Computed example of a mutant assay.
Amino acid sequence: MASMSNLIFLSSIFLFNIISIPFLANALSSCNGPCKTLDDCSGQLICINGKCNDDPDVGTRICSGTNPPPSPPSGGGGTCQPSGTLKCSGKSYTQYKCSPPVSSSTPASLTLNDFSEGGDGGGPSECDGKYHSNSERVVALSTGWYSGGTRCGKLIRITAKNGKSVTAKVVDECDSVNGCDAEHAGQPPCRNNIVDGSVSVWNALGLNTDDGVVPVTWSMA
C-alpha cells in the first residue's frame, strides 16, 4: 500500500498535469500562449507554430509590447476582431468584416489585379457592374475599407516607398470574408489591409509587378 506522502506526491503530479493541459479551459490564450487553431487566441492574435502571436497581415505589435491603441473598424468604434475562419484547399484563412482605421497615411499592402473580362476577379466590378481595362487606374479595397460600397467611384491617393504617388478610382471590393468559390474565381478571402490595384496603378508607381505584394500607404484623394 502506498504511503500517505506518496499519495500526496502523486496527487500533486496529477493536478499539475491537468492544469498544464492546453485547451482544458475555454479561456483564450494571450501572447505566446498555446493554440491549435485561430479561434484559440484572444483579440487580434493568430496561431503561429502552436503559439499565439501578432498577425503580420494586420500589423499589430501586442506581443512586442509596442502595440498602438486598438484599431477601430472603418467608420465605427471598437476593435477590429476576426469574424471567423474559412478553410479551403487544406488551408485556413482569417475572415474580417473590418479594416484598420483610415488616416491621411493609411498603411496597406498593394496587390495586383486584372479588372478586365476574364481577369482575376471572375466577374465585373461590384461598384458599376463593368469590366475595366488594364490601362485604367482602378482599385479594389478590403471589405472594411470598401465600407459597403460607400467609397465606390471615389479617388484615393496611393504612395509607394519610393516616394511616387498616384490617384486611382475605387471600383470593387476585395472580399475579406468570402472566397474559394466560383464567384471569387476560386481565390481565398483578402486580408483586411489590401489595396488591389490594376497594372496601370503599379506602372504609375514605378513598381515591379513580379513582386506581387508591396507595402504602400493610401488616403482619400
Results as ranks from 00 to 15, higher is better:
2 A>G: 05
3 S>V: 10
4 M>V: 14
6 N>T: 09
7 L>Q: 14
10 L>D: 11
10 L>E: 12
11 S>K: 10
17 N>L: 10
18 I>H: 01
18 I>T: 05
18 I>Q: 05
21 I>V: 13
21 I>D: 07
26 N>M: 09
27 A>T: 15
27 A>P: 03
32 N>D: 14
33 G>C: 13
33 G>R: 09
41 C>K: 01
42 S>K: 14
43 G>T: 07
43 G>P: 00
43 G>L: 03
43 G>V: 05
44 Q>I: 15
49 N>E: 11
53 N>I: 00
54 D>C: 07
54 D>S: 05
55 D>I: 00
57 D>W: 14
57 D>M: 06
59 G>D: 13
59 G>H: 13
60 T>E: 10
60 T>F: 00
62 I>Q: 02
64 S>F: 06
67 N>G: 15
68 P>N: 12
68 P>Y: 02
69 P>A: 13
71 S>V: 07
72 P>L: 09
73 P>D: 02
73 P>F: 01
76 G>V: 04
79 T>R: 11
80 C>L: 11
84 G>L: 06
84 G>Y: 06
85 T>W: 00
87 K>L: 03
88 C>Y: 02
92 S>K: 01
95 Q>H: 12
96 Y>F: 13
97 K>S: 12
98 C>L: 11
103 S>T: 15
105 S>K: 14
106 T>G: 06
107 P>V: 09
109 S>Q: 15
109 S>A: 11
113 N>L: 13
117 E>S: 14
118 G>V: 08
123 G>T: 15
125 S>A: 14
126 E>Y: 09
127 C>S: 12
128 D>L: 07
130 K>V: 03
132 H>Y: 15
132 H>N: 15
136 E>W: 06
140 A>M: 03
141 L>A: 06
141 L>V: 07
142 S>K: 07
144 G>D: 02
147 S>T: 01
148 G>W: 01
154 K>S: 15
155 L>K: 15
156 I>W: 02
156 I>C: 07
157 R>D: 12
157 R>M: 05
158 I>G: 00
158 I>Y: 01
159 T>W: 03
161 K>E: 15
161 K>T: 12
162 N>F: 00
162 N>C: 11
165 S>A: 15
168 A>C: 04
170 V>E: 01
171 V>D: 04
172 D>R: 03
174 C>H: 03
175 D>E: 09
178 N>A: 11
179 G>F: 01
180 C>P: 01
181 D>P: 08
183 E>W: 07
184 H>M: 08
186 G>P: 04
187 Q>Y: 10
187 Q>I: 09
188 P>H: 13
189 P>Y: 08
192 N>W: 08
193 N>Q: 07
195 V>L: 14
195 V>D: 10
195 V>I: 14
198 S>D: 09
199 V>Y: 04
201 V>E: 08
204 A>K: 11
204 A>M: 07
205 L>Q: 14
207 L>S: 05
211 D>P: 01
211 D>A: 04
211 D>G: 00
211 D>H: 03
212 G>S: 08
213 V>R: 14
216 V>Y: 09
216 V>A: 03
216 V>T: 03
218 W>N: 01
219 S>E: 10
221 A>W: 05
